[in-house]
Amino acid sequence: ELVLALYDYQEKSPREVTMKKGDILTLLNSTNKDWWKVEVNDRQGFVPASYVKKLD
């Protein structure tokens, strides 16, 4: 499943990933309501769920 980055996000820990507004990311896990695991540029990590939106 793919998600769209709604905002820029700068990683604050090694478990997170940086994304730019408009990026298309692969959603790996959305079981946590606050932090979703995504893959971007061959890196996996977490981003705030409120910063991304699922693409239909």
Rank of each mutant, 00 (worst) to 15 (best):
E1T: 14
E1G: 13
E1L: 13
L2C: 10
L2Y: 15
L2F: 14
L2M: 11
V3F: 08
V3C: 14
V3I: 08
L4E: 11
L4R: 09
L4C: 10
L4I: 15
L4P: 00
A5F: 01
A5Y: 01
A5H: 01
A5E: 01
L6W: 04
L6A: 04
Y7A: 10
Y7P: 00
Y7C: 14
Y7K: 14
Y7I: 08
Y7V: 08
Y7N: 08
D8S: 09
D8R: 03
D8N: 08
D8Q: 04
D8V: 03
D8K: 03
D8L: 02
Y9S: 01
Y9P: 00
Y9I: 02
Y9F: 07
Q10D: 14
Q10M: 12
Q10P: 06
Q10A: 13
E11P: 15
E11W: 06
E11M: 13
E11K: 14
E11S: 15
E11N: 07
K12P: 04
K12A: 11
K12E: 08
K12L: 09
S13M: 08
S13Y: 07
S13V: 05
S13K: 07
P14D: 12
P14F: 09
P14I: 11
P14E: 13
P14C: 11
R15E: 11
R15H: 13
R15S: 12
R15N: 14
R15L: 14
E16K: 04
E16G: 13
E16R: 05
E16W: 04
E16T: 08
E16Y: 06
E16Q: 11
V17Y: 04
V17D: 01
V17M: 13
T18F: 05
T18R: 06
T18C: 06
T18E: 04
M19A: 02
M19I: 14
M19E: 01
M19L: 10
M19T: 03
M19F: 10
M19P: 01
M19H: 01
K20V: 09
K20S: 09
K20A: 09
K20W: 11
K20E: 06
K21G: 05
K21V: 08
K21R: 12
K21L: 05
G22S: 03
G22Q: 03
G22V: 01
G22C: 10
G22T: 02
D23W: 13
D23E: 13
D23G: 04
D23I: 05
D23A: 09
D23S: 09
D23H: 05
D23P: 01
D23Q: 15
D23C: 08
D23Y: 06
I24K: 06
I24T: 07
I24H: 05
I24A: 03
I24D: 01
I24C: 06
L25Y: 11
L25H: 04
L25D: 00
T26G: 09
T26I: 15
T26V: 15
T26K: 15
T26W: 14
T26P: 15
T26A: 12
T26D: 05
T26S: 10
T26Y: 13
T26R: 15
L27H: 02
L27Q: 00
L27W: 02
L27C: 08
L27D: 00
L28C: 07
L28Y: 04
L28S: 03
L28V: 12
N29H: 08
N29Q: 10
N29W: 08
N29D: 15
S30K: 08
S30P: 06
S30N: 09
T31V: 10
T31Y: 10
T31S: 15
T31E: 14
T31P: 04
T31I: 09
T31A: 12
N32C: 10
N32E: 10
N32T: 06
N32I: 05
N32V: 05
K33P: 14
K33A: 13
K33W: 09
K33E: 10
K33M: 11
K33L: 09
D34L: 14
D34M: 14
D34Y: 15
D34Q: 11
W35V: 03
W35N: 02
W35G: 01
W35F: 07
W36D: 00
W36Y: 07
W36R: 01
W36F: 07
W36S: 03
K37H: 11
K37E: 13
K37V: 12
K37T: 07
V38Q: 00
V38Y: 01
V38S: 01
V38L: 04
V38D: 00
V38P: 01
E39W: 10
E39T: 10
V40P: 00
V40A: 15
V40Y: 14
V40M: 15
N41G: 15
N41T: 09
N41S: 11
N41F: 14
N41M: 13
N41P: 10
D42C: 14
D42N: 15
D42S: 13
D42L: 10
R43E: 05
R43F: 05
R43P: 00
Q44M: 11
Q44N: 08
Q44D: 07
Q44T: 11
Q44G: 07
G45N: 00
G45L: 05
G45Q: 01
F46E: 04
F46P: 01
F46L: 08
V47G: 01
V47Y: 00
V47C: 03
V47H: 00
P48L: 04
P48R: 04
P48N: 02
A49S: 13
A49D: 02
A49T: 05
S50R: 14
S50L: 10
S50Y: 09
S50K: 14
S50P: 07
Y51A: 09
Y51Q: 05
V52M: 06
V52R: 02
V52A: 03
V52D: 01
V52H: 01
K53Y: 10
K53Q: 13
K53A: 12
K53M: 15
K54F: 10
K54R: 14
K54H: 09
K54A: 08
K54L: 13
L55D: 04
L55Q: 05
L55K: 05
L55R: 04
L55P: 04
L55S: 05
D56K: 12
D56H: 13
D56N: 14
D56P: 14
D56F: 13
D56R: 12
